[in-house]
Computed example of a mutant assay.
Amino acid sequence: MALSPAIDPAGYTYAHEHLYIDLSPFKNNADCCLDEYELLRDELNSLMDRGVRNIIEMTNRYMGRNVDFIGRLMLETGINVLFSTGYYQQNFYPPHVAQRDAQTLAAEMVAEIETGIGNSGIRASVIGEIGSSEGKITPDEAKMFHAAALAWHQTGRPVSTHTGFSTMGPEQLALLTGFGVSPESVVIGHCDLRDDLDTLLKIIDAGAWVQFDTIGKNNYFPDEKRVRLLSELSQRGLLSRVMLSMDITRKSHLAKNGGPGFCYLTDTFVPMLRAAQISQREIDQMLRDNPATFFK
């Protein structure tokens, strides 16, 4: 019987991460294969020391997912990992996506949720990361959102999305709710790559969740601006709809390789939040309570 990992509600959760991902064939860049076991193990042990107990692993089948590799990390570090099922976005789709209908694509997701991922003995817990391109949703991507909605109707598992540089989030939500998905079951990903408070408010007002999940990627968008946006949401009492993460995907993102490392969020970004007068209660909300509610 396949196991379906459950979130530990007492610990912090990184809501959008990758512990093994291989996009190197698509990007023609060996750095895009995150596969350094010892470095990942050591960083996860450090996260455990800081009270992080859960990782939402967003690598689905066609992003190079490696359940055995992650299973070893779970056993050796004690960290809890929830796995995902679905398809990423247009540029990374395998050829068969164009030929299959939404019902067939949904059936693949449902099988990984209800039966298990391959022969791993582990079931997927999240429908994601379901993505769209920057500034548009292609016809095949729209079909994938339909498939995700069908999988949600059958399993009730939450849907986590990928936006291209914080674009098309409201449109993603409109697609999913148009297919009957409850907005409370949707989190829009990568909402922290644009200085766009209005879009954040629109998504939250519609009943969905938002993720600030590229924390530490200052080359894309500075953390100081992320903090300012979170302060705006704090002043409106809306951090109860926000989750945090880093979306580490490359070897060069790991601390020993010169990157921020997984502990950057707890060690550097959280003190930035405190300095901006965001309370410990709100920090606990974003890192513990909100993920425990959403991914339960």
Rank of each mutant, 00 (worst) to 15 (best):
Q211M: 12
I79M: 09
L105S: 10
G11R: 10
L230R: 02
N219R: 15
D205R: 15
K217P: 06
A276N: 13
M246L: 06
S160P: 01
L239T: 11
Y62M: 10
D22T: 09
G86S: 10
D101H: 03
T268F: 00
A142F: 12
M286V: 10
A98D: 15
I130A: 11
T115K: 15
M63I: 07
G51S: 02
D198N: 12
F69E: 04
L287I: 06
K296H: 08
R157C: 01
Q235L: 15
A276I: 07
P170L: 03
I215M: 08
T199R: 08
L75F: 01
L150N: 01
F69I: 00
K251R: 14
V110R: 13
Q172Y: 07
V97E: 10
V187C: 08
Y37E: 08
A107K: 04
T199D: 05
F295M: 03
A151E: 06
Q211A: 07
F262E: 00
D22Y: 06
T115Q: 14
A142Q: 13
Y37S: 00
A208S: 08
V242D: 01
P222A: 08
D284E: 11
K143G: 05
T104F: 02
S46G: 04
G78H: 07
M168A: 08
T77A: 01
N29K: 03
A6C: 05
H16P: 14
C32F: 09
M109L: 11
G116H: 13
L23H: 01
Q99M: 12
G164R: 04
T138Q: 10
I188A: 13
I130N: 05
S160N: 08
N29E: 02
G118D: 12
V270R: 04
F83K: 05
L197I: 10
A111Q: 08
V52K: 00
W209I: 01
S234C: 09
D223N: 13
V227P: 01
A30M: 00
L254T: 11
L73K: 00
T199I: 06
Q154V: 11
K27W: 06
L200E: 01
G164P: 02
G259Y: 00
A111R: 13
E43M: 14
I56W: 00
E112V: 02
L239F: 00
E57I: 07
D22F: 11
F212M: 13
T163S: 07
D213I: 09
N28Q: 14
A15L: 03
L19D: 11
P158F: 10
P94R: 08
I55L: 06
N218S: 08
D196F: 03
L19F: 09
D247C: 02
G261F: 00
G180F: 05
H162A: 09
E134S: 15
N218D: 10
V110K: 13
I117Q: 12
L197W: 01
I203M: 07
F179H: 14
R274H: 03
P139L: 11
G261T: 04
R41M: 04
P291W: 02
S84C: 03
Y93D: 02
I278Y: 03
R226L: 02
A276R: 10
L44Q: 02
I137E: 00
V159P: 06
S84T: 09
A276F: 13
I278E: 02
H162I: 12
S245F: 00
A142T: 09
A98Q: 14
R65Q: 13
G237N: 05
H16R: 07
I117A: 12
